[in-house]
Design a protein around this nucleic acid. Structure first.
Length: 663
RNA sequence: GCCCACGUAGCUCAGUCGGCAGAGCGUGUCCUUGGUAAGGACAAGGUCACCGGUUCGAUUCCGGUCGUGGGCUCCA
């Protein structure tokens, strides 16, 4: 038998007999790797561990620690779950069941939703399937055989998926709808005998699947089904509602426990709960969904954030402007919002239709166009804390993270095409600075391209997209591409930040727009004395202030740094006879520009300390006889505990040091 | 908007197989005058989300509305 050469990721090479499997290679390297391996990459292609190696290849063994390894792991868990569901509900039809960012789901066509009891039964079946350690096997069927197989099981979903594969492989548009699919099958029957589709099986269970999968079901160490939900077939409301089960799986119980702890931690940080407990904001059922009300402490937090944002914009050459909330609908036609059926609110005044602004750009364009602009004026950077209203569908509202009325730190930069790249870069740097001040230091950058519903010419879109790519390339910024994720008027760069527990949130977005300047016919006079069309950049850094506050609340778990704390200092007089001194301390702190209050409740000191700790005030100042006599305060820090007495002036110096953005 | 679940005191939740509702925490008052995460007593507080229906009687059953949660989809 001939030998082949395997190149491993560290560039080392080993000789093995032809037909050796990746699993056998792993066993040769070490028993532990063989146990941990979940799949392989052969010359960059994801494959099963028992796929024989027939020629010289490069081989990477994937474990659960690799993202792709996790996906294989979870996908196999989804198959096991689907098997379990069919054991409990033989009539449940399989549809799709992919791995997702954290875990997996599987959608089933069912005559009723799953109950908690059902889930318990399904989990039990899964445990049995895992204990049986059934091997996953792969079999190539012709599409014709696959259709026959799934038709015999009365599963029209798999027939549709098979047809999708045939259509895609043969360069056709996948047909939609029962009749179109039948017609496609009739007219392309020869393709169905040519195209092969893989099916994976374990035990008695078989599913249409690209793979790869784990070697066997016993590889799943620990799992949990986390939730059930309705979901439409292919995500479209017109299609039947399927029943979805979500789950997670890990190599061992400890990892699962870690995951559950993270979920618990996320619940503990939930901004909706903290918003109520810390008395920051709330909603009124009678006043409208998705419309937040800021209580004094929440409004202070908001003020601190926006005040900081305004100052930073002014430092960078932005000019403050302000535009009305109501704008005649004609303008929304000019901008294209009306034609795009953008979800906005309209009202009528004196027989004229007005739209409540869902975006600030048209107002900014009007101001730009209000007089002749010279190339010497550019770039012009208009900034507005612009409050907008959007008709978000009721089902998507979520605390402060998804609301119907919100304020953006919105700016529009008008510049020449030559200035575009520098402006984009400076916005990226600005955003990076701003987010770091709020404790976000990890980002991911995305480029979103032209969506289906859009305005403008192909050429404009190409130029705009290229400008964004060039700017990022010139500064070695790595980015991922989100095809079709752009705004209707232009492509965009999105920056997503990672919070304290690893979740990603979209904040800054930079949108390049060649179409609105044309629609509003704005110009500048160039060096040549001719009129030229400026380029416009839409950009937000914190994005929606509401959403940003929600993220900030969760990132700090409500324990804000001194510069963001709505109440920085709570003064705690020991007895009633210290109330006057406590008031003096508060007065002094307020006069120095700090945010302080005194807790003069009749409860014991211990109880008031407990209360202050739970409210997460950064500092508590205990004042009794000793402090009063010597003009001191006994300092207690939220996290560090009792720091002992010190003169009030000394404490003020400490506080001033910490009362700086980003400190 | 759609699917599922839910809505009882400010909060967390009991409870009512249809007969005018309870606890803990919180709040108020009084007692205690306290030294770094819960002192004690008493009290107030609910048309059981709202509207309609069935019923002798509805917080409980039915329908609708509003709101919330988890998803689908969309987005800051």
């Amino acid at each position: 038998m001939s030998e082949i050469t395997i190149t491993l990721p560290d560039d080392s090479k080993i000789q093995v007999p032809q037909g050796t499997t990746p699993l056998q290679v792993a066993e040769g390297i070490g028993a532990r790797l063989a146990k941990a391996a979940v799949a392989a990459k052969i010359d960059g292609v994801l494959t099963d561990l028992h796929e024989p190696l027939e020629r010289d290849v490069s081989l990477t063994l994937l474990t659960f620690d690799d993202d792709e390894g996790k996906h294989v792991y979870w996908h196999s868990a989804a198959h096991i779950m689907a098997d379990a569901v069919q054991r409990v509900f033989p009539h449940a039809k399989l549809t799709i069941g992919p791995a997702i960012e954290e875990g997996f789901y599987y959608d089933f066509h069912m005559d009723r939703p799953f109950t908690d009891d059902d889930i318990a039964k399904i989990e039990q079946q899964m445990a049995e399937i895992i204990a049986a350690d059934e091997p996953f096997t792969c079999k190539e069927l012709s599409a014709a055989e696959a259709v026959e197989f799934w038709k015999s099981r009365d599963n029209e979903y798999k027939v549709e998926l098979t047809t999708d594969i045939v259509a895609t492989e043969t360069g056709h548009q996948p047909p939609r709808g029962h009749d179109a699919i039948q017609q496609f099958m009739d007219s392309h029957s020869s393709d169905y005998t040519q195209v092969e589709v893989s099916h994976y099986s374990h035990g008695q269970f078989t599913d249409l699947c690209r793979g790869p999968h784990l070697p066997s079901t016993g590889r799943i160490g620990a799992f949990k089904l986390t939730s059930v939900a309705g979901a439409y077939w292919r995500g479209t409301e017109l299609n039947p509602m399927l029943q979805r089960i979500y789950g997670v799986a890990f190599p061992d119980r400890k990892a699962l426990a870690g995951y559950l702890e993270r979920m618990e931690e996320a619940r503990r940080r939930d901004h909706r709960i903290l918003g109520r407990d810390l008395d920051l904001f709330g909603f009124f059922e009678e006043a409208g969904a998705g419309l937040p009300y800021y209580h004094p402490r929440g409004a202070m937090l908001r003020h601190l954030v926006t005040d900081f944002a305004v100052r930073e914009h002014l430092k960078r050459g932005y000019q403050l402007i302000r535009t009305p909330h109501l704008i005649k609908s004609e303008v929304w036609h000019t901008s294209g919002h009306a034609q795009q059926a953008y979800p906005m609110y309209y009202t009528e005044i004196d027989g004229h239709s007005y739209g409540i602004k869902p975006m600030n750009c048209p107002g900014h364009l009007l101001i730009y166009g209000s007089r002749t602009r010279s190339y010497r004026d550019l770039p012009m950077r208009y900034f507005e804390l612009g409050t907008v209203y959007r008709h978000e569908r009721s089902g998507v509202l979520h605390g402060l993270l998804r609301v119907r009325g919100f304020t953006q730190d919105d700016a529009h930069i008008f510049c020449t095409p030559e200035q575009l790249q520098d402006e984009i870069i400076s916005v990226i740097e600005f955003a990076s600075y701003m987010l770091s001040v709020f404790g976000f230091n990890e980002y991911r950058t995305y480029l979103s391209t032209r969506p289906e519903k859009s305005v403008g010419s192909d050429e404009q879109w190409e130029r705009a997209t290229q400008a964004l790519v060039d700017a990022m390339d010139a500064h070695d910024i790595e980015f991922e591409v989100d095809e079709g994720g752009g705004a209707f008027y232009g492509p965009k760069i999105d920056i997503k930040v990672k919070d304290a527990i690893g979740r990603l949130w979209q904040c800054a977005t930079i949108q390049c727009d060649f179409t609105q300047p044309e629609r509003f016919d704005i110009t500048y006079v160039g060096e040549d004395g001719q009129e030229h069309r400026p380029v416009m950049i839409h950009r937000v850094v914190l994005a929606g202030i509401e959403r940003f506050l929600g993220i900030v609340i969760e990132n700090y778990a409500g324990a804000f740094p001194v510069w963001l704390a709505p109440v920085q200092v709570m003064v705690l007089p020991i007895t009633e006879r210290h109330h006057d001194y406590a008031a003096q301390v508060v007065e002094k702190l307020l006069a120095e520009g700090f945010r302080a209050e005194a807790d003069t409740a009749a409860s014991t000191l211990g109880a008031r300390i407990r209360h202050a700790e739970m409210q997460k005030y950064p500092y508590m100042l205990v004042v009794g006889d000793r402090e009063q006599e010597q003009g001191q305060v006994a300092v207690r820090h939220r996290d560090e505990g009792d720091l002992g007495p010190q003169p009030l002036d000394e404490f003020i110096l400490r506080l001033r040091e910490e009362d700086r953005p980003g400190a």
